[in-house]
């Protein structure tokens, strides 16, 4: 069976700088995998290559067996590769209701419909409500996004991506900057994602990584250093060296 998402020899060079170096990577269906690495390891570039914001210098990106290397970002979203952002990328003066409705409309191919008002299709408002309920946003649906508590904004960040019906969901530091009191809601929402959605978590927070991931990939200097189960990664001397600054001999 095809993996949910694969890369083959993926590389990105900016002039003389190699930001992503020959990454061959595999995300199984239903995976709960984490991508970790120190600052500057190239995680952001890698995600941008996966989602189509950047075009790779060489290599391929394959989603469920289909080569998507040359597809535009929105075409990848329609095929089920969806991401969230480390820094909220929301629509400040729109409401969560509008944000989720937008994603649902686009997924159902209604985004070009100019004749009917938003929500005229019952299936849309029903699904908006389901997504809002899943992420605990029902009570703030009609408020401006930029007036919401930060934790709610982070939930909306994930809810909007979820409304695109992802096959593969890339979560970029979902709990970054969230106050302790609201953190639980986000962890619960992530834990409750449907099992058939393959999740790649890009994260700094090791507590979250080790509580969530069943497999971990470590990215260093643009290349994959090691991959494996959490226990193996925690015990790996090279990973410890990278994170703790220890020297590796030999």
């Amino acid at each position: 069976m095809n993996a949910a998402l694969e890369t083959h020899g993926l590389a990105k060079r900016f002039g003389g700088i190699v930001a992503t170096n020959d990454v061959t990577f595999r995300l199984e269906r239903g995976a709960r995998q984490a991508l970790i690495g120190p600052n500057g390891a190239g995680k952001t570039t890698f995600v941008n290559l996966l989602t189509g914001v950047l075009t790779p210098s060489t290599g391929r990106v394959v989603l469920a067996g289909e080569d998507i290397t040359r597809l535009r970002p929105e075409a990848r979203v329609r095929r089920g590769l969806v991401r969230t952002f480390q820094i909220n990328q929301l629509f400040g003066d729109l409401t969560p209701l509008e944000t989720i409705a937008l994603a649902v409309d686009e997924r159902l191919g209604l985004g070009r419909d100019w004749r009917r008002r938003v929500g005229a299709v019952d299936a849309v408002s029903a699904e908006v409500e389901q997504v809002a309920e899943r992420f605990g946003l029902l009570d703030v649906l009609d408020r401006r996004t930029d007036t919401l508590p930060y934790g709610k904004q982070r939930l909306l960040e994930i809810a909007a991506a979820f409304a695109c019906a992802p096959q593969v969901l890339l979560l970029d530091e979902p709990a970054a900057g969230v106050p302790e009191a609201e953190r639980r809601d986000i962890l619960d929402a992530i834990a409750a994602l449907p099992a058939d959605v393959s999740v790649l978590l890009i994260e700094h927070d090791m507590d979250l990584v080790f509580s969530f991931a069943r497999r971990i990939s470590v990215l260093v200097d643009g290349g994959l250093l090691v991959e494996g189960e959490p226990e193996a990664i925690a015990a790996d001397s090279r990973v410890r060296a990278v994170y703790l600054g220890e020297r590796i001999d030999g």
């Binding site: 970002p73 952002f85 629509f91 686009e106």
Partner: peptide, 8 residues
């Protein structure tokens, strides 16, 4: 973000 939600 619009493009990341599937908007062409």
């Amino acid at each position: 973000r619009a493009s990341a939600l599937g908007v062409p």
